[in-house]
Structure formats: structure tokens, C-alpha cells
Design a protein around this nucleic acid. Structure first.
Lengths: 135, 135
DNA sequence: TTTTAATTCTATATTAAAGTAGTAATTAAA
DNA sequence: TTTAATTACTACTTTAATATAGAATTAAAA
């Protein structure tokens, strides 16, 4: 019961970028080393974030990645959706295709609250929220 | 963000058995067909439920599986723990090894409520609860 | 006692996610 | 204009979960 590694990486990368707003451009190598994410795996994820207009990239020498919009306008759910949408199949906890209010799986009612709590968290939490917290 | 297929199967099997209390012994073939779970995969899961004392098995002709205790005494969490404990790594949503109250990951506080809601559901819901519900 | 129907054990195959490798394209500095 | 530093693209490899196969074991019925 966890986010995909890909989603976890995407979130960690964006928090890192957001927390270092003094840096204007980030290189894949740098992010990879700082966050211990395999370089080639990271660049694949970055491309997805670029495609989703969360990150802008500059190619060539002196190029790199930078954040495309204010962190207050980036929700956690956006990050997950951009890379693999691993939250999408949280719909039915028993993985039953046809499970909805009319035709409920056995755990449907019990699962409602945890599911909503989880989805609400991802929908209502912004990158700014989590980047500002102390540790 | 979902339970493993193995856990989903285990839960569905136990609900099926619990909801058909008129049947005293279940055969792998029968369960497999009724729930569309691959036969050989199912028998592996059944063995784990047997090992966890949730199911008792009788070998040989006229053998089969039956429930080992009252459904009110079987919690959802027991089923998941018996087969692969895929709930265990719900601990840190960002998959960071060292994440706890003292050394929090960036999403730690936001994740607390969804996580607890989910764990509470699995810990407080019994097989009886979910087997009695209509659909 | 043999046969049959069941679970159990061990090994193998398939699939999807995670991770790696190499080359192409781009761009600024030298 | 060449070189160096960067991202982008395409293909491959590895790993873990899922799924399958076959033989061994068990025990009741015939």
C-alpha cells in the first residue's frame, strides 16, 4: 500500500527544487546525487514533469531544469498524475472493476473514509505547504 | 496506491467463505472458479491462510478448506498480514527509511491522517462486518 | 487394496516496474 | 567553428510480483 517509486521520486524532486529557491537552475546530475535517485531514471521522470508543464527545461550547455510555476499552484496530486497516476487505482480497495455506489464491493463503505482522506490530502496539499515545513 | 493482488485475493476469498456459512468445506477449484482467481495462485494463498490459523485445511479425498474461527474474531489486517503484509510499508508515504516523529519526511504531517484512517479501517473492521453488508 | 479427489511442495514462466546504457540533439563557451 | 555540457530519445536489462506446471502427499471411497 504505497506510492510507486516513480511518484515518490517525483515528489521528492519537486520538494527539493522548491526548498532551494535560491538556485535558479538545477542539473540532473546534481539532483540525482543529492536525492540518491538513479541518474537515468531521474531524467525520465524529469521529462514527464516537463511534459506536464510543472518543470521547464533548457537544453544544451548551461541548461538544466527549473520550476515552471509558483509552488503554491502545484498540488501533490499534479505530481503523481504527471508521472504515473498511481493514485488512480485507489478507487476500489479490492481491485474490482465494477465497484461504485450502485454496485459496491464488500469493503466499499469502510474504504470510503480512508480513500477520501488520502485523496483530499493529495488534492489539497500544495508543494508550498510541504516545502515550508521544518523537520 | 493499492493493496497487492495477493492481499485483494485473500480478502475476497475470506469474504466469500464467510458469506456462505451454509457450506462447511470449500474446494480450491470451487473458490477459484467462483472468484476468478487462478487456481494455482489461489492454493498458494490458501496455504498462507492455513499457516496463519485463519483457515483449516483437510487433505485427501473429501478434503478442503474451512474457516478456523468466528468471522467476528478475524480482522482485515490479519488477512493482509497473513499473506504479504502489503500494508506494512504504508509507514512513510515518500518511502524514506528514516521517517518518524523525530525526523519527519516533508509529507509526514499531511500523511498522518490518511495513514491512520487506513490502518484504523483495517484494524477495526472484522470479517463479520464486511460479510454482512448488502450490496 | 486400488483409485480418486483433494491439498502441499518445488520449480518454472510471464509481466510490469524499476533501473541502466548509449546515442542524438541542443546550445553556450572557448 | 570546435568543444564541452547539458537534456531528449530509444533500446535494453534486472528485479519482484504474479501466474503456471507438475509431482508428491494424504485420506476417503470404491
Amino acid at each position: 500500500m504505497k506510492l510507486s517509486t516513480t511518484s515518490q521520486y517525483a515528489i521528492r524532486v519537486m520538494i527539493f527544487i522548491s526548498q532551494n529557491s535560491d538556485i535558479k537552475i538545477f542539473h540532473a546530475k546534481e539532483i540525482s546525487e543529492k536525492l540518491s535517485i538513479p541518474y537515468k531514471y531521474l531524467t525520465k521522470i524529469m521529462s514527464k514533469l516537463v511534459e506536464a508543464n510543472i518543470i521547464t527545461s533548457t537544453r544544451g550547455r548551461e541548461g538544466g531544469y527549473s520550476i515552471a510555476k509558483k509552488s503554491v499552484n502545484i498540488k501533490m496530486i499534479d505530481l503523481v498524475k504527471a508521472v504515473d497516476d498511481s493514485l488512480h487505482d485507489t478507487t476500489c480497495v479490492l481491485g474490482i472493476g465494477l465497484c461504485n455506489e450502485n454496485k459496491k464491493c464488500a469493503l466499499h463503505d469502510e474504504w470510503r473514509e480512508p480513500k477520501e482522506s488520502m485523496l483530499n490530502m493529495f488534492c489539497n496539499t500544495t508543494l508550498k505547504d510541504v516545502s515550508e515545513e521544518a523537520s
